[in-house]
Design a protein around this nucleic acid. Structure first.
Lengths: 185, 185
DNA sequence: AATTAGATAGACCGATTGATCTACTGTCAA
DNA sequence: TTGACAGTAGATCAATCGGTCTATCTAATT
């Protein structure tokens, strides 16, 4: 039989799911209930709700998913970048799609002192490095600026898909990503 | 001496400011205090907090601001579209910038029944029509698809600027907007 | 002058929030 | 056997939430 994970993992799993489907405003009680964990364990492991939310973002592995999608697309930088937008089209078409978890956290948590903000920034910086590396391999004359453009496109797709469900923004963005790639020599 | 606006206007002004600076999670009490209005007036005029929030979005005049920026740029559709991104660069560079109020509302308010969602959608649709009209005048072969691209860029700029303050995403997006315009015959 | 509608002030409500606390249980190692 | 420790269960806390209520005041209408 499968041993179920410890309280810490169960808390992270429950929080990851509920803070996405219901937003970070979800109550601690709901998380505790779904995790089937004692109240005290939460404060023992994460210090409080804020710490739990931050750890959810930190341990989310969002960057790994981007890497995986690109790796499955092969070696060609161009194909690897475009594969990201194909994947975005699939993600944003799912009924359970509720936007980018990082952007949502950033916009929802107004308090600048919230530990989640640092995690959001770290994620975006990591994604920027990821994209810049691809553009460098592709011979792009300004990989940093190009990565900025790709990030705008990615964030734009994830933000826009929430408000206009039928728009398929990833397809629109994919064509612009090709324009970014076309800047290479 | 200037007669101060009625309770309804004061409520809208206070709510517009506070829901932006502190998010829609801001308490009713804070809005009432800043508006210097009796509690009852809020429920008399708007039925509740949800109604007030929705009316803030509806009466925000965000579309008018886009129109004004484009009108100030003259008649040429190309200049009018690019002026939008110049303006976005200015807006996102302000210290008080806290993201797109509509996107934030959409991501924060999880309840699908919240009346704000309809206002968000109406705004984005209006913006889409605005951009499509410019592309049509510019001779774009597919104004609707082109407007989709411009909206992704706009949403991307507003979303990305929140998480990476120094990135100047509007400048990156402006170059891509030129690519959209270049599709015209 | 009488009536009426809108606004104000503020008490009050039940529900929920995040967090702390005590008491108890099970496990493993010394 | 003892002790340490992590986890559980649940009472409890103060604060805050959105919303309803009564009572009073004011200004325009009739």
């Amino acid at each position: 039989m499968t041993t179920r994970p410890g309280p810490r993992e169960r808390l992270l799993d429950a929080a990851r799911e509920l803070t996405y489907s219901q937003g970070v405003q979800v109550g601690v009680d709901a998380i505790l209930k779904q995790a089937d964990v004692a109240r005290r364990s939460l404060y023992q492991h994460f210090g409080g709700k804020d710490g739990l939310v931050a750890e959810v973002l930190r341990s989310d592995g969002g960057l790994d998913r981007y890497r995986q999608v690109m790796n499955e697309a092969g070696d060609d930088p161009r194909e690897r970048v475009l594969a990201v937008f194909d994947e975005l089209d699939a993600i944003t078409s799912q009924p359970a799609f509720r936007g980018c978890r990082y952007t949502a956290a950033e916009l929802t948590l107004t308090d600048p002192a919230h530990p989640a903000h640092a995690e959001v920034r770290a994620f975006k910086e990591g994604l920027h490095r990821l994209m810049a590396a691809e553009l460098t391999r592709h011979g792009h004359p300004a990989p940093d600026a190009g990565a900025d453009q790709l990030l705008v496109l990615i964030d734009g797709v994830l933000a826009h898909a929430v408000t206009r469900p039928g728009a398929r923004p990833a397809l629109a963005a994919r064509a612009l990503a090709e324009a970014v790639l076309a800047a290479s020599k």
